[in-house]
Design a protein around this nucleic acid. Structure first.
Lengths: 195, 195, 195, 195
DNA sequence: CATGAATGAGTATTCATTCAT
DNA sequence: AATGAATGAATACTCATTCAT
C-alpha cells in the first residue's frame, strides 16, 4: 500500500477523533465511535495508534504544528511591526474561537488522560504561546508602541489569559460573532497595551 | 434519623464529589471513589442521589448558592459605588482562582454529562454572572466612573471573558500567585473601563 | 449478606476456575466461561477477584492448603516410621494422579501468567514438598530403613521427580489405573531406597 | 525461488516458533512475535502455514524426526547390548533436560490447541517412545541383564514416567546440573532394573 | 436509613487471519 | 513469492445502578 494512502488513513482517524472529542469530550468518545466516523475498523484504529490516548496526542501534535506555522509568521512580523503582529495574533485567536470544533475541543483538555505524549504536546503549546507573546511584547516595547511599565513576560501572560477567556467564551456561547468580538478586542488591546 | 444527620450525609457526598471531580474530572471520578472519600457505602450514595450526574448537579447548585450570596453583596455595593463593587468582584475572581480545587473543577465543566439539572445550574450561573456584571457596569456608567462608548452588556461580557481567562490560567498554572495577579488585574480593569 | 454465603460464592468461583483450567488450560479458560460454570455474573467474578490470574492464585492457594494438611500428617508419621510415611506419601501421589481434574490442572502450570501471587504459591508448594520429602528420608536413614549413601536432599529430589513423572503420565493417559500403578510404585520405592 | 530458499524460510519460522513457544507457551506466543523472530512478514507466515496451530504441528513433527533418529540408534544397540542402549537413552534424556528451550517447550504441551496434526504428532512420539523402551527392556530380559518379574511393557512405562519426571524437573529448576543428575540416574536404573 | 453483594451493558485492546498490491 | 495494511470477533475488566438483608 502506498505511503500516501497510509498517511490518509492516519489523517482520517485523527480527524475523526478530533471531531468526536470536540463534541463529546475525551472519555465519552469511544474508539468504536471514532472508528465509525473515520470509516475504519477497530483493528485499523489500533494498527495506527497503540491507545486511544495516543490519538489525542496526535491530534494535539497536529494542532501544535499548525500553531507553529501561524506563530512563525507572527514572529516575523513582530520584528518589523509589533502592532501588526498583534493584529495577526488577534485574527488567529478569533479564527480559533470561530471554529466550532476547536472551541469545543479546548474544553476537552480540562480532563486529559494520564499520558506522557498528551502532556508533552500541551506543555509545548503553552510554552510556544508564552514565548512568542513575550517576544512580541518585547519588540513592541522597543518600537515604542507598547507600554514599558511591565515586563514583556507579564504582559504576554495577560494576553494569554485574554485568549483563553475568548476561547472559553466561544465554547460556551457557540460560534462567536466575529464582527462583534473583533473590533471590541482591538479596542481592548489598544487600551491595555498603549504606553 | 434526624434531619441534621441526613443533611450532613448529603453534604459529605457533595463535598467528596466536588473534590474528586476537581482532581480527576467527571468521568474519571467513579461513584466508588466518591463513596470512599465521603465515607459512605454505594447504597447510601444512591439513596441520596438517583444518579452520578445528580451529584454533579448538587455540587453546581451548591456553588451557585455561594455565588448568589457573593453577587448579592456586589450588587448592593454597585448601587452606591461601582468601582468598589468592581474591586469586590475582582477579589471574588481571585478567591476562586486561588482555590485549588475550584480551579480544577472549572476544567471539568468542559465535558459535562447530558443532564438537565446540570445544564440548568450552569445556565443559571452564567445568567447570574452576566446580569450582575451588566448591572454593575450600568451603575458605573451612571456614576461617571466607567466609559460609556459601549453598552453595559458588551462591557460585562468582556469582564466575564477576563474572569474565565484568569480561572483557566489558574487551573493550568497551579495555585495562582495572588500578589502578582491582583495588582495587575486592577491595572487592567482601570485601563479597560475608564471613560 | 452473610459471611457464609460470601465464602460460598468465592468457593464456587474458585472451583469453577479449577475445573475450567484443568480442562482447557489457563489462557483458553475465559472469564465468561468460568462465570457460566460458577453461575455468577462477570461483575460478581471481579467483585471477588481483581484479575483472572488472581483466581488461579486462589486455586493454587487452596491446593497448597490441602497439601499442607496431608504433608503435616506424613511428617508426623515419619518421625516414628519413615516407611509408613513413605506409603502415605505414595497414596497421596496416587490420589492426585487419580483425580482427573487435578492431573489435567498440573499441565496448566507449564504456562502460567506473570503473576506474583501465582509464582509465590507455586514456589511455596515446591518448597514444602522438598522439605517434607527431605525430612522423611532423613528420618528413614536414622531409623535404618533407607539407604545412607546419598544425602536426604538428593534422594528427596528423586522422589519428587518420580511423583512429577507419575502425575504427567496420568495427565496424558487419563485416569490412571491405581491397581496397577500402586503396587509397582511400592516395588520401585523399595528398590530405590533400601539400604 | 529455489526449493532451498523455500525450505530455509519454512525452517526459520519453525525455529522461531519453537523458541517463542518454549519461552512463553503456545497461547502467549503471538504470530506477530514469531514473525519478528523469524524475520518474515505475517503474509509470509501464513503462506507457509495455514494456521498458528500448524506451526506447532511442524515443530512437533521436526522433534519427532529427531527422536526417530536417536531411537533408531538405541534400537540397534539394544539388539546387541540392552545395558549400553539404556545408557544411550539416559544420555538422550539428559540431553533433552539440559536443552533449556526444550525443557520449557515440554511445559507448553500441557495446554495444546485442538488440532488434529498436533494431537497426531504427540501420539506418534508417545507411541514411538513406548515401543522402543518396551523393545529395549525385552532385549535386556533376553540378555539376562534386566529383571524378568514384570512385563517389558510395564517396565518400559516406568522408564517413560522417570523420563517425564526428569524433564519436568529440569523445566522447573532451570538448566539441570548434568554432572549430578547423570550418575544418580545410572544408579537408579541399576537398582530398578537389575534382575 | 444503611450496607455491600450482585448485576450486565459497555469499553479498550489483542490477535489470528485475509488479501490487494 | 513476499509484504503489511485491514479486518472483526473475542476478551479481560470497569462501573453505574439495584436490591435483599
Amino acid at each position: 500500500m502506498s505511503a500516501i494512502r497510509r498517511t490518509a488513513r492516519r489523517a482520517d482517524i485523527i480527524d475523526a477523533a478530533y471531531r468526536c472529542m470536540a463534541q463529546h469530550g475525551y472519555e465519552r468518545s469511544t474508539t468504536a465511535q471514532i472508528c465509525k466516523v473515520a470509516g475504519v475498523s477497530s483493528g485499523t484504529f489500533f494498527h495506527y495508534f497503540p491507545t486511544k490516548a495516543a490519538v489525542l496526542g496526535a491530534v494535539l501534535e497536529d494542532g501544535l504544528q499548525r500553531t507553529r506555522e501561524v506563530f512563525e509568521r507572527i514572529r516575523d512580523t513582530a520584528a518589523r511591526d509589533a502592532v501588526a503582529a498583534l493584529d495577526q495574533w488577534r485574527e488567529h485567536v478569533l479564527d480559533e474561537a470561530s471554529d466550532e470544533n476547536l472551541a469545543g475541543f479546548i474544553a476537552v483538555l480540562g480532563a486529559v488522560p494520564d499520558n506522557a505524549e498528551v502532556a508533552a504536546a500541551l506543555r509545548a503549546e503553552a510554552q510556544l504561546t508564552r514565548e512568542v507573546l513575550t517576544e512580541l511584547v518585547a519588540a513592541g516595547q522597543e518600537q515604542g508602541t507598547i507600554r514599558t511599565d511591565r515586563t514583556p513576560d507579564r504582559i504576554g501572560t495577560w494576553l494569554g489569559i485574554l485568549a483563553r477567556g475568548v476561547l472559553e467564551h466561544a465554547a460556551e456561547e457557540g460560534p462567536v460573532v466575529r464582527d462583534t468580538l473583533g473590533p471590541e478586542m482591538t479596542d481592548m488591546l489598544i487600551r491595555l497595551l498603549r504606553p
